[in-house]
Design a protein around this nucleic acid. Sequence first.
DNA 1: CCTGGCACTCACGTCGTACGAGTGCCAAGT
DNA 2: ACTTGGCACTCGTACGACGTGAGTGCCAGG
Lengths: 339, 339
Amino acid sequence: MLDDRKLEVLRAIVEDFVSTNEPVGSKALAERHSLGVSPATVRNDMAALEDEGFITHPHTSAGRIPTDKGYRLFVDRLSQVKPLSGAERRAIQTFLEGAVDLDDVVRRSVRLLAQLTRQVAVVQYPSLSRSSVRHLEIVHLAPNRLLLVLITDTGRVEQRVVELPGVLSEDDVVQLRQAFGSRLHGAPLVDVPAALADLPDAAPVAIRPVLTSVMSVVLETLVEQPEERIAISGTANLTRSALDFPNTLRPVLEALEEQVVLLKLIGEVNDPTTVHVKIGEENSVEGLRSTSVVTVGYGPEQAAYAGMGVLGPTRMDYAGSIGSVRAVARYVGELLAGA
Amino acid sequence: MLDDRKLEVLRAIVEDFVSTNEPVGSKALAERHSLGVSPATVRNDMAALEDEGFITHPHTSAGRIPTDKGYRLFVDRLSQVKPLSGAERRAIQTFLEGAVDLDDVVRRSVRLLAQLTRQVAVVQYPSLSRSSVRHLEIVHLAPNRLLLVLITDTGRVEQRVVELPGVLSEDDVVQLRQAFGSRLHGAPLVDVPAALADLPDAAPVAIRPVLTSVMSVVLETLVEQPEERIAISGTANLTRSALDFPNTLRPVLEALEEQVVLLKLIGEVNDPTTVHVKIGEENSVEGLRSTSVVTVGYGPEQAAYAGMGVLGPTRMDYAGSIGSVRAVARYVGELLAGA
DNA sequence: CCTGGCACTCACGTCGTACGAGTGCCAAGT
DNA sequence: ACTTGGCACTCGTACGACGTGAGTGCCAGG
């Protein structure tokens, strides 16, 4: 059905269209890529590719452009991931190693990714649900107010103010710290509920009411609403492909403002070893049907903390994007593992 | 020079143009607004307004549109700040009171503002340089590593990991805590360098090297790089005025990605009592010359923590935007003051 | 199965034209 | 001195006709 030359023609069409953004005709194609056959032959192959649904015409007298299905085939079988240049590798390293805390790492990564790919970059903060407790600090703000500060092993910090039912002495606070500290230190967040289960019974009666109210805030913060955060950069790059998004720029920008949508987009697969590509209609998100998304999980070795990726027109440089995304994810993963 | 009727004509032009986005002609204007004069008279007034530079033609056979100078006059003398509807006030309240920490307050505010004004909203996190230290926590991560967590009275949390020159005992850490805690608690960040000045001399010799290295990190974090953060929302609203930004959407999006630019925009005036409006060319930022910015400081009473505002086409609903921005700033100010 | 040739189809740019909104100005009216 | 109706003029826009050329599909011959 699809012999090697037809595949070669498809690759040529995708590559030409991606770089020129204009429908590519049989003649130009036979000339520029040394296929060794005449335009007429190319036309026949094109007709076959069109029958199979890999390419289309915008109109009768125009050249061909790839369909989503065509891009899919291209990504799966025809493209080789572009390795980064030495300059790019160095750029990544120097750019990221200046990071001063987790927020900084994420912000730098997302900017970096946007610059490398010249597209919209999205990076999810390390997920709470997959981290462990590094430290829980309890600060005695006022007799009846506490500030809880939780720090995870990924460097993430969550904080909450707790209004207490009663007044607390400094000694009580020390007891609280001990009670929580011993149970939580190093515990994965998913295990926190179990680790705290026996707490009310084990604690001195005097501080039980306070303790339970603190406990409920802790659980609520960490487990029930594991709030996920996301950083975006490079939205201005969307305008570069403004021609690709005649009336669709709007929904794309809207989708990018919806945390939930983005999480869905990035979070669907978090396998840190492979890069995933969603092309056009494959996207579950209405409004992103004219875009492609390249995602990957990142984190130390097996454990993926979270996802990151880039989003652009279906007509994008897949090989380059996949390479950049993978490289940045690796660096960030190592960085977080070492920290 | 500019009698009352001419001003009235200017107001009518601005209002019509803002709502329809089409150049307004003398006839339509005389009909829709009950000015009590004929189109011809309106034309004369228009000619006068044009001589003064308050309005222009796009071309000969088109109606008039306001110039930046025209909008300026409108904002300064002709528009009345629109009070919010009851529903809007209630929306603000319910939306903001669910906030769980500072980050949440800021994120909710910026979303709210974008929705109310249907424009791009920008909110600066409470500035570090204007806050005081609420608490400095020192966590002993490993023998030669410390985690510093600084919490300000505005609820902002900054954290840094410090690699120490030597190994530290638990007792040393306690001493460190005391040394810093006593000096910093409640101190305005600007006074921190002074408060710490005598620290190396006063401390036990044993921990001095460690202490100075911690100190330098603290100072660096808090004073030398008072990193300002910013939240944005509603960029999708820019596409609504896509007709206003034919080729200028790009630079606007780019400007919105530059923290520095935004801070400059918002930070120029932080008087919490008045709302400031920058119209078109008045903007110091290249690339935002086709936009207007409405900003205000927020914070408890006299002390402005930071700024917030909205950005849109010069052709925007100034009265409504000013009202919304002011209202949200007040609520957020109260909220933070009470927290 | 490839190739050159050939007729055919359309999108696109150009040109000319008609239309109409809106203006500027003037002379008459108040 | 200001307002008003009238009128000629400008110019941007919409519309239709037309030529052009890129690109195709098909066919007959190698």
